[in-house]
Amino acid sequence: MLPSFVLYALIASVLVSFVAGTAGVFAVLRGVSFLIAGAAHAALGGATIALILATQTGIPFLPPIVGALLMALAMALATGYAGGRGITARMETAISVFFALSLCLAVAAISLVPSELMSQVWGFLLGDILLLTEQDVLILTVATLVVISLISIFFKEFTYICFDMEGAAAFGMRVHLYNYLLLSLIATSTVIATKAIGAIVVYAMMTAPAATALLHAKSIERAIILATALSLLYLCTSLLISLTLVNIAPGALAGVLAAVVYLISLTIKRARRRIRE
């Protein structure tokens, strides 16, 4: 029988893999992968503010993960609004501005956290896949199911706005609605993954497997399956290494694996193209 913390870590790995595979692929296709970094830092700020509210003031209890989710969603919606018609260059500028804002809010909130609560903030920053509680796993499961269901239902709409937003609008689709929904789902996925692997590593884990899969896959569906499988492989491998070989943060190790495999895949793909030419 596995100890409960290992079981929770394995369940969280599966959940993170699913969101990294689905939302990660759409983030890369939409050209907003940097939104993941912004949403992760917004989540850090939101979780910290929730922590302060819960412990320092008389305001009713707000779980840090809910605070993280609210702040990340606010960041995604502000990005969608500022990005206007959804042109990639404008989205990048909007994401950069709100990434900086999120980071500033997170730093300001952290500076107000009393020292006895700093370990919880560090947990969110660096990830605590081996310290997840039953409640955490339950929240992550529900959030993952919501994200996967909505991405499945609106798969075509998201594909169309990634491929040609102006064309989709010209054919009568309510593109802004789907754009906001997609950005919100990417932000929600980021919060889910951040809770398990930390605000820093989440960027690598959500973009690198998706980018690797898109180098090889023949369709978006296959890219999602491949990115999910790769994420699961990295997370399980790093969990195994951290539990049996070296006492190292599994999330960080998974992030390193993801980045290295992406680099190798890219090199192989370029070499193959050169040989063909």
Partner: peptide
């Protein structure tokens, strides 16, 4: 310039886009 040409999508699906998006 407004069309993202590196998306793995089949020709058939690009054309269906013109029908289904409506």
């Amino acid at each position: 310039e407004f069309i993202e040409r590196d998306i793995p999508i089949k020709v058939r699906d690009v054309i269906l886009f013109g029908l289904l998006a409506r």
